[in-house]
């Protein structure tokens, strides 16, 4: 699932460690959700169609979309069991993805 920003392998490791994966985008991603379910991965692909959550979290990239629409800034957050943010990566270049090793390290440090 390319949408998960190249984190695929790291997320599988995280999932084995009992971590839940929640992926948020403006569109319903049925294909990815079906694939995840079929692969028995505890990934949940949820939709934020009006960007309400994205806005609340301050992650909107105004007019950043292909057609000039507002889109989310690619972001990866690691939350511990208390829901506290323990690691945060917010993109500033759409070519770059977060380092899967760094995500795994953050998950293992929980």
């Amino acid at each position: 699932m390319a949408e998960l920003q190249g984190l695929g392998a790291a997320l599988s490791e995280a999932e084995k460690a009992g971590v839940a994966i929640v992926a948020v985008s403006p569109d319903l991603n049925e294909r990815s959700q079906e694939l995840a379910t079929r692969l028995r991965l505890d990934y949940r692909f949820v939709a934020d169609p009006d960007l309400a959550l994205t806005r609340r979290y301050g992650l909107v990239h105004a007019r950043g979309g292909q057609h000039g629409e507002d889109v989310p800034t690619p972001t990866t957050v690691v939350l511990d069991r208390d829901g506290v943010v323990r690691w945060l990566w917010v993109s500033n270049n759409f070519q770059v993805r977060p380092d899967p090793e760094a995500v795994l390290h953050a998950v293992r440090a929980l």
């Binding site: 390319a2 949408e3 998960l4 920003q5 984190l7 997320l11 995280a14 009992g18 971590v19 839940a20 994966i21 929640v22 992926a23 948020v24 985008s25 403006p26 569109d27 991603n29 994205t54 979290y57 992650l59 950043g64 979309g65 292909q66 889109v71 989310p72 800034t73 690619p74 972001t75 990866t76 957050v77 690691v78 939350l79 511990d80 069991r81 829901g83 759409f94 995500v103 998950v107 929980l110």
Partner: peptide
């Protein structure tokens, strides 16, 4: 459970 929360644009 801990959670990894990922925001993405919906396309690469």
């Amino acid at each position: 459970q801990p959670v990894v929360l990922v925001f993405y644009r919906g396309y690469w």
